[in-house]
Computed example of a mutant assay.
Amino acid sequence: MYRYKVDKMGCGGCAKSVTRAVHGIEPDARVEVDLGAKLVTVSDAAGPAGSIAQAIAAAGYPAQPLGTTT
């Protein structure tokens, strides 16, 4: 499970864009968005955390990896 801080994310549309970006490279991933905390948690992803952060950033939302959780 990967966690990211996404400071530019502020609305439901942003959350959908971020989720869509993650699913673009990890179709089976589970994405949880906490808009209040500006956090994104990605579970069941096979790829590296960096590629997910790059996909989120490419959607216009720079993402800071916060590491993995169990």
Rank of each mutant, 00 (worst) to 15 (best):
V33I: 15
H23E: 09
A59K: 06
K8Y: 01
A63N: 08
C14L: 14
G13I: 03
A53C: 02
Y61G: 01
M9Y: 13
V18H: 01
K8R: 15
A29F: 10
G12F: 05
E32Y: 11
K5I: 04
G47Q: 11
V42H: 13
G13S: 12
I56E: 01
M1H: 12
S17K: 12
S43E: 15
D44A: 14
A53H: 12
G67V: 09
D7T: 15
A58S: 06
C14D: 12
S43H: 14
P27H: 01
C11A: 05
A29D: 14
Q64L: 14
A53K: 05
A49M: 08
L39P: 07
Y4L: 04
A45Y: 08
A55S: 14
I52K: 03
K8N: 14
V18T: 02
R30F: 05
C11G: 04
D44R: 14
T68P: 00
P65F: 11
A21D: 01
A21R: 01
A45N: 07
D34I: 05
Q54D: 15
R20I: 01
P62S: 06
K16C: 01
T68I: 06
A63D: 06
K38V: 06
I56F: 01
I25S: 03
T68E: 14
Y2S: 09
Y61C: 02
S51P: 04
S51F: 06
P48F: 00
R3Q: 15
R3D: 05
A58H: 07
G10Y: 09
D7H: 05
R30K: 12
V42W: 10
K5A: 12
Q54L: 07
C14M: 08
Q64T: 15
D28Y: 07
V33T: 05
K38D: 10
A37D: 15
P27A: 04
A46N: 09
A55I: 07
G13P: 06
A15S: 14
V18P: 00
A29S: 08
C11S: 04
D28C: 00
L66T: 05
D34Q: 04
Y61T: 03
H23N: 09
V18I: 14
R30E: 05
E32D: 14
G36Q: 09
Y61S: 01
K5R: 13
H23Y: 06
A37S: 11
P65I: 10
I52D: 02
M9K: 10
V6N: 04
A58R: 14
M9A: 10
R20T: 15
Y61H: 09
G47E: 06
G24A: 12
M9G: 13
V31Y: 05
V33P: 08
R30L: 04
C14Y: 11
R3S: 10
G60V: 10
A55W: 03
A57S: 15
I52A: 04
A29H: 11
V33A: 04
L35F: 07
A55L: 07
H23T: 06
T69M: 02
D7M: 13
C11V: 05
I25N: 11
A45V: 09
A29Y: 07
G13E: 11
R3V: 10
S17Y: 00
G50L: 03
K8F: 10
A53D: 15
K8V: 07
A37Y: 11
S17E: 15
I56Y: 01
A46I: 12
A45E: 13
L35C: 07
T41W: 01
A15E: 12
A46L: 09
P27M: 02
S43L: 13
M9F: 13
V42C: 12
D44F: 10
G24K: 09
G67Q: 10
A53P: 02
L35P: 04
D28P: 00
